[in-house]
Design a protein around this nucleic acid. Structure first.
Lengths: 213, 213
DNA sequence: TCGGCGATTAATGTCAACATTCGACATTGA
DNA sequence: TCAATGTCGAATGTTGACATTAATCGCCGA
């Protein structure tokens, strides 16, 4: 939480409440009650909700309460199709720049989270932070911005994916990401792009299996 | 202007002022003076600026005035690399759905704008609306959202590109877009994706030639 | 003279009151 | 009975006053 300002803090609180299930998909978020429970003004809550809308995890309508986005197979497919495209560009960019040590710390952190048997949410967080590192190495501000705009939605679906035990979510996680990092440092732009797309595609497959809908 | 609310209207006014050069790249936008000149409250201006930030044409900072994004070769390269990736997915999606009449009206409107010798800004608008149609046919909400987040920035650079006469901007425009539409209706997903990427790549080349910086 | 430091000031951040709008429910009329 | 319409309540949209922050400029001392 390094974000400055009450609005950003409000956004943080609401976001985490959504992530831990305190607000279900489709549920309404009323500015008034949020303001009361967070002990801030409705204006700040409103600005916080605007941030969350930018992250795509809530929708707003004219004179209607904000709602948590519903999760569905269709939306997941479209979201991951977009992510595949973004990751492809990021991987190409990262491979092009070839800064070897860019994602080693993130990879190490992911590995220790998995081997330590950390909570699901922690593993998901480490997973996303690895991808953050890839985007950072790619060094493309508009691309990173597009990633930020879907990151929270991805997080929501990853939590769904890893919600139940025996999901096999983190068994191959470290191996796949190690291979990913290897390819990126190899500098082979084309291969990197292809691998990134395929990586996301397989993640989608695993997710769709868990999405009854 | 079907947008509802004073904030959206304020965003519209400011956006157009940026597009027609009333605010130069890098220039500061003060909430107070904007509120005064638009005769609305600072709060509404603030929310309008938040919309424009989502569109990527202004930046904001903590306790600092918003600024119009600076244009640069680097930023253009990164922006168009992202756009190429998005357009690729959109083209693949549109080719997959194969709704023939989806972009014919937009194409016709672009053709008439060019042949009528309409103003640069009108041609750019028609150009973008054609691409809007492609995204709509692709029918992928997160993807369309990502497109909306860069659309205004693209518009800004397209205006730069077509700013001076003899730029050769619209000579091949109609031909290229007709071919684009053809490929999309043909249903060949792979070819559509490749053509879209290449289309953007050549647009970037033309743009970089006009960007001294 | 120069460099650090504090008051100034001009901007943004926050708040609470008021205006507007939407959806639901009751009402009325054919 | 049913559909169009009026009314009501609860939510969001908008506003202006007040709090907070960061850059600027001048002062002071080494």
């Amino acid at each position: 939480m390094n974000a400055r300002g009450i609005a950003a803090e409000a956004a943080h609180m609401i976001r985490e409440a959504i992530m831990d299930g305190s607000f279900r998909p489709g549920e309404e978020l009323r500015e008034g009650s949020l303001a009361e429970s967070l002990t801030v003004s409705r204006g700040s809550v409103r600005e916080g909700l605007s941030i969350l809308e930018r992250e795509g995890i809530i929708r707003t309508g004219w004179h209607r309460p904000a709602t948590v986005i519903p999760v569905s197979r269709d939306h997941a497919r479209n979201l991951y199709r977009l992510r595949a495209g973004l990751d492809r560009i990021a991987a190409q960019g990262a491979a092009h720049h070839t800064r070897a040590d860019g994602f080693s710390p993130a990879l190490e952190s992911l590995r220790s989270a998995v081997t330590d048997g950390a909570a699901r949410s922690e593993v998901v967080r480490a997973d996303l932070e690895f991808h953050d590192a890839v985007y950072e190495v790619a060094d493309n501000a508009p691309l990173t911005s597009a990633w930020q705009a879907i990151r929270s939605q991805i997080r929501l679906y990853q939590l769904v994916r890893s919600a139940e035990p025996e999901s096999g979510y983190d068994s191959s996680l470290v191996a796949e990401h190690s291979r990913y990092a290897e390819i990126l440092t190899s500098g082979d732009v084309e291969t990197a792009g292809r691998y990134a797309e395929q990586h996301v595609e397989s993640a989608l497959e695993g997710l769709l299996g868990r999405l009854g809908d």
